[in-house]
Computed example of a mutant assay.
Amino acid sequence: MKTCFENLEINENDLIIIGSSSLQKVKEANRDKQAIILETKKYGTGEPHESWVNQILEESNKKDFHRVIAIGGGGIIDIAKFCVFGDGRSIQQLFSDKEKLNKKRELIAIPTTCGTGSEVTSVAVVEIEALKSKLGLQIDALFPDKSILIGDMLENLPYPVFSNTSIDALAHAIESLLSPKANAYTDLFAKRAIQIIVNNFLEIDGKRCLPNDLQNALIAANMAGIAFSIAGCATMHALSFPLGARYHLAHGEAVYAVMCSTLNYYKNIGVSLDKLEKALKDSFPVSSDRVKDLISLLRSNHQEPSFEEMKITKSECKDMAKVVYEKQQRLLVNSPRELSEKDLEIIYRNCLKKERT
């Protein structure tokens, strides 16, 4: 980190937005460089929420910073993205005025988890209280100007965070691969990301530890981010947003909660998963159903969040499906087949089954 800061020539015109996990490393690297450090936990915890992100926006606008440097997971990077405009707008105003926004600050993203992909995308997501869900702002101004991958930043990552964020990155890659917007280039990135992530889980299967090559894990997440920045995320991510907002699941947990049910529903309605099967060929060389083996591997390494334990009811599944169908078409248009509100409800309700397929 110290070498990184020296190369970036960090100075008093820089705003560093950071969570708590890497704070000590950053303080040491920032010594005598006089950048302002803004620690997000002083404003709120968990996934970015409209109310306290607005406080961070207000704080970030007190000085004419030239650069915003995000060091953290996807939530931290997304918060930093909202700060690049520096013009006093609130979250609600940023969404309302997205056609009028002008980027004033350079954005540098340094991820500290292996799942976000936010360091190479033009999307920032925040929880909106009135909707009881999350919304994503997607405009080119939100692309980071620089992304820096430092494997050492992951060395103290707790295993649950590693597995959650890896599964999120896997979902990015799978949804990109199956997207109608996919092309030969996004497929290259998505397939390689899937292979690295799956092989990481095979390496550590049953051990609940980090894989040996953390830099490679970062690269896989980055590749998945490049793929979905073009081909898009889809059903899994759309369905995850109400779960994160209503039941306070971390983003990776919320995606994982619906991931297996979504893949099984695709199979049941005849969506071709051949591209995914082929991407998994080297990881499961003798398998007759590689998607099934993938689901088994994930469950072996990380238990799915339980709809029963969260006390989610059938009526809540119906309500969430309605919200997703009405508010998340930005994502749903990237699904491999057009899905109705009823389809979304069925996927949610399938998560309620005690014996999941």
Score class of each variant (00 low, 15 high):
197 I>T: 05
328 Q>M: 14
299 R>H: 13
239 L>S: 04
336 P>A: 09
340 S>A: 01
14 D>W: 02
71 I>R: 11
252 G>Q: 09
301 N>C: 15
253 E>D: 14
308 E>S: 12
34 Q>D: 13
161 V>M: 14
196 I>S: 03
167 I>S: 06
108 I>S: 06
25 K>W: 07
330 R>E: 09
31 R>T: 09
71 I>M: 04
46 G>D: 06
108 I>G: 05
187 D>C: 07
226 I>N: 03
118 S>T: 15
300 S>C: 10
260 C>L: 04
113 T>Y: 08
280 L>H: 06
242 P>K: 04
228 F>C: 06
26 V>N: 04
155 E>M: 09
65 F>L: 07
24 Q>S: 15
17 I>K: 12
199 N>C: 01
223 M>F: 13
27 K>W: 00
215 Q>I: 00
47 E>L: 15
247 Y>P: 06
193 A>S: 15
240 S>G: 12
254 A>D: 11
237 H>T: 04
341 E>F: 00
164 N>I: 00
67 R>S: 11
288 S>M: 02
41 K>G: 01
252 G>Y: 09
59 E>N: 03
313 T>N: 04
228 F>M: 14
112 T>A: 13
329 Q>K: 15
346 I>Q: 10
56 I>S: 07
229 S>N: 14
43 Y>T: 05
352 L>H: 02
277 E>I: 03
51 S>N: 14
36 I>C: 08
51 S>G: 00
320 M>I: 05
93 Q>R: 11
62 K>R: 15
329 Q>L: 02
308 E>L: 01
308 E>I: 00
235 T>F: 01
231 A>D: 06
308 E>D: 14
217 A>D: 11
332 L>F: 09
40 T>Y: 13
243 L>R: 01
306 S>P: 07
110 I>S: 07
309 E>W: 01
34 Q>C: 10
238 A>C: 10
